[in-house]
Structures are given as C-alpha cells and as structure tokens.
Write a protein that binds this DNA or RNA. Sequence first.
RNA 1: GCCAGGGUGGGGUAGUUGGUCAUCCUAGGGGACUGUGGAUCCCCCGACCCGGGUUCGAGUCUCGGCCCUGGCCCCA
Length: 410
Amino acid sequence: MLKKPRGTRDFLPDEMEQRRDIEGRMRETACRWGYREICTPEFEELELFTIRSGEGIIGEMYVFEDKGGRMMALRPELTAPVLRMYVNEGKTLPKPLRWHYFADCFRYERPQKGRYRQFWQFGVELIGVDSPLAEAEVILLAEESLSAAGISFSIHVGHLALMRSLLAGLPDEEQKRIRRFLDKKDFNGLYDHLVPAGKADLFNALTRLVSCRDLGEVFDITGDLPERKRIEELFMILDQSGIPYTLDPGIARGLDYYTGMVFEAFAGNLGAENQVLGGGTYRLAHLFGGEDTPSCGFAIGFDRVMVSRGEQAPPHRLVAGIAHTPEGREWALAVSRDFRAAGIRTELDLSGRSLGQQLSRIAKSADYALILGQRESMNRMVTIKDLRSGVQKELPLTDAVREVIGSEPR
RNA sequence: GCCAGGGUGGGGUAGUUGGUCAUCCUAGGGGACUGUGGAUCCCCCGACCCGGGUUCGAGUCUCGGCCCUGGCCCCA
C-alpha cells in the first residue's frame, strides 16, 4: 500500500473545517487592518533563498532541476518571495503596502510535534514605511491574529540595537557565536567563553541585558544609543495600546536580515516547538534588485496554532437529509434546490432503497430528515422530522426551510 | 544528522516458555424488514510495517531498513 510522504499529513473533513475556520479568522483580521491577500508561486528559483542565507540551507530545502535545467526550490518561507514580488511588481504601488498571505511551505527536516515537511504559514508584510508606529501596528496585528485563533500566548518584543551596542567592535564571527549562546540561554557556555578571555564585563552586561524587563534599566546597561528615542517611542505606543507583551532584549532571532525591532510569540501545549510566531523589521528588497526598502512583518506557524488549540469539536452546521420514493423524486430535487439555495447543507439519498433504510442512514449524519413520497409530492408539502427531538411536521416548502434556518445555532 | 520509546484489520485492543492461515469492541459494506427502521436480526469486508537470520515452526527471538511519537540539532 502506498503511503503519504514522510512529514506530510492528510486532513479529513472534520479537521479541514476547523483549519478553514481558524484560517478564515486570521485572514479576516488582516483584511480589517487593510492587509490584503496576495499569492506567490509554490516554487521559486533556488537563488532567491540562497542569496541571503547561503548555500548551507540547500540541504533543508526541496530542490529540483526543472526540464529546462533551472535549479528550483519549493518555498521554505514566504518573506523572500513576497519581497521578490514587491520588487517585480509592487514598486510603483502607493506606499505603504499592506499584504497578507496564507500559504504552505516546505522544509526537509525531521518531523516532530508541531513540525512537518509541508506546513502552513499565515503572515503579513508592511512594506515601505520605517517608523515606530509601523512596527507597533505589526505587533498589534500579530496579537489580534493570534487572539482570533483562540489560543493563549505571550508576545516578547526586543530590538537588535540593544545587544549590538554591547557587541559593537567584535568580529562578526564572534558576535554570532555570542548570540548563539544567548539565544539558547546557555549562560554557562557564555561564561566559559567570555570570562577566561578577560571579558567578564561584557559577560555581566549581556546577562543583565537579556534578563532585563525594564526599558530604563536597559539603557543603563547599554548607555545612550542613537536608536534610543525611537525604541522608547515604540514601547510607549505598545503601552498605550494596552496589549500584553514582555520586553525581551535577549531575542536574537538567529537571522541576519532583521535590522531593528524583533518579536516572537509562544504558546503552550506544544512541547519543544513552542514558538508560534516570529517577526520584525528587516531589509531585503535591495538583495533582489530593488531599492533598499524598509519592511516589517511576521509569520505565524499555522500548524502549531492548531496543535496549541488541541482537540476541539468542529463548528457544527445543520444537515438536512432527504429520503424519497420514486414517485417523490422530482419533488425531492425541487425541495433540495430550495434548501441549498437557502444555505442549508442538504444531502439527497442516492441509494433508492426503502424509506426506512434511507431514514436509518440519514439519522446517522443529519439533524433533519425530509420525507418526500407520493403523498408529499401530490400535496406539494414537506414532511420534516427533527431528528434530535423526534418531532415531525408536515409543512409547505418555504415553512420547512424556515424551520431549519430558525434553529441554526448562532 | 544524533538519542529514546514504539509499529497486530479504518480506530481501539488480546495474543502464554516461539506451537492450528490470530481475540474482542467499534467503524465500514451488503441483505431481510415495502412510509418512521435512530430499532431488530443475518451476512460480509479487513491486520501481525518491510526484508534478512535463528528454528521443524516466528505476531512472539535476532539484525537491518522504513514509518510513527517525542527530545537534541536546526529553525531562513
């Protein structure tokens, strides 16, 4: 028997309905903020992803040669494609650009909880503005998107300038190494790395900085920075907006293309992979042949959000099943047309068996049974049985439709 | 790439010191019952992850692989 590829999943209707429900809430949130949906290709030229990340990531991508001999890759993320799209066709649009996407990505990694080889990301990019208010907007939208998804989470916000000021003057390699320690919260490793080398002051400053949760104290540690005013303004806006967040100068976000504000969100119920969102301010457009353009965005790991929600009953939609006899078939088709036109999920019996058998089948999956035989057909009436209460009525068609719609929850 | 624990019908399970082409529940399919059958009765479908080894004989022991579930690494 053939099986699905490792790290991929099949979704049955119950699960698919839940995913669409949550996806729809996030989309709707973004649209309300003016972030309209875009779509980019499932695969891109390999170079798009290696240009800033190096060749090393090829091993974690689905890479293939197309029939024309071009090296292609299934997209491992959306930020680079979206910025490529911006450079190709968005340059002349009025700024700022507010875009959102919901798309599947592919990474060749070892599957584990909340991590799959095909996974979905919901994200936004705000392109062409560079201000504390823009950064705050992205954070606020992230908060609202996760809330709309119905999970509990915490948002951590930091700024790369803080740590960079302490590391200024060190070689790139060394900075990277130190950030690695801090990202893993490996303070023992950091101690062994710095203190014997005579950098005890740096060690102390760094450890104080990453655990600091007060902006005033942060600047006591770093001293005055050119970015100070801007950073203070960002956090002032966040405070004014009233959203819950944690100041976290320790966020390093391993990546090289972030330039300023960085933020992450974490949720429970997820094991080792508890980060559900990452984002920040970055500059990428110039790498793809465009002008240097400030941008800000985030991406949500949609599958992790679904794991974090846990097992939940799918939203219930009422179902009407139609049992009919040969004499009632024409009437049954007319009735089902009207029911569907009214938005009711309506399933017509296809077996042609006795009414009893049809009802027995309908009762397994439907909330209402409609019985349409010779009698109903002649009188243009609908026998409708509420399968939950057992109450049965004979009504004109429009009243039968109203009966079902009237009992729809919500 | 590394580590741990696991793979018996679609789902959940029983299976002794190796010993009849494997238990039970559930789901699914079919039939009887000809307008209430959401019932009842009958029948059917369908599994030892794959491959090598030990053995007269392997679901059971052993080795390798694959896959699943977690953890590490990584996380653009």
